[in-house]
């Protein structure tokens, strides 16, 4: 089975996000970049499937040349090879789905697995749009995937409970946190990843325009939370809500 796993390069999510002073973007000074954590679950799932029943895991990342590092990190987790679609433009979810659809057509995989969202923009859209563009079945927020003959049974977490879907392959699945426990990149695998194939292409090579329909106008930090107060009684609380906060 061939599984295509789109992966995104994101700023280390453990680092507090700071904006550039003019609000034009995120300040990346001294920030290290990682494989989007949700995509690590997707890679792990794909690698486990292939380890069990054969096939190959192919990664794809879209962005600047730096994304090669991200791909190598993913290759060190057990993927076989990767695509780097080089562009300096910031693409929105629909444009990303266009690019992924083009790579999909080149590879014709049996399955696409990716993270449910990337932790930088948190849009949670590209995978769904990709499925729509390719007219493929989709199952998002998977916490369990079982493959059968030409189909997949996907257990997914939804608000208020669980939902089980059976979809025919090829299909698009997005990974949630409880899907598996991603492995560490073992050092010999990191060394091997250095020699694995990364195919570099431009948007033009793929024949996609990938024009973003949305534009980010500005970014701002959430306002700082004001200090709370401890009240001694219900009466005092009501009084403060009425007279100080003026919300009652």
């Amino acid at each position: 089975m061939k599984i295509l796993v789109p992966v995104r390069r994101v700023p280390n999510p453990d680092i507090k996000v700071r904006l550039k002073s003019d609000g034009s973007g995120v300040d990346t000074e001294g920030v290290n970049f990682l494989v989007n954590p949700f995509d690590e679950y997707a890679i792990e799932e794909a690698v486990q499937i292939v380890e069990k029943s054969g096939g190959e895991v192919v990664l794809v990342s879209i962005g600047t040349a730096d994304c090669e590092e991200t791909l190598r990190a993913g290759l060190a987790l057990g993927a076989l090879r990767g695509w780097l679609v080089e562009t300096s433009e910031v693409l929105d979810s629909a444009a990303i789905a266009d690019v992924l659809a083009a790579v999909y057509k080149e590879e014709s995989p049996d399955l696409v697995i990716t993270g449910k969202q990337s932790v930088d923009t948190d849009n949670n859209q590209a995978a769904q749009m990709l499925a729509a563009k390719l007219d493929l079945p989709q199952a998002c927020f998977a916490f369990k995937v079982e493959l059968g003959d030409g189909k997949a049974t996907v257990e997914r977490e939804i608000d208020g409970g669980l939902d089980v879907k059976e979809i025919t392959l090829p299909a698009v699945i997005t990974a949630d946190l409880r899907l598996n426990q991603p492995r560490y990149a073992a050092l010999p695998q990191i060394m091997k990843a250095k020699r694995k194939e990364v195919k570099k292409v431009s948007l033009g090579d793929l024949g996609v325009e990938a024009k973003s329909a949305t534009k980010i106008l500005g970014l701002s930090q959430p306002p700082a939370r004001a200090a709370g107060q401890i009240v001694g009684s219900v009466e005092e609380l009501v009084d403060k809500l009425v007279n100080d906060a003026k919300v009652l």
Partner: peptide, 14 residues
């Protein structure tokens, strides 16, 4: 190199 930084990351994560 980026590989060396990956070795370090595995060690730190571990």
């Amino acid at each position: 190199s980026s590989e060396q930084l990956m070795y370090a990351k595995t060690a730190r994560d571990f």
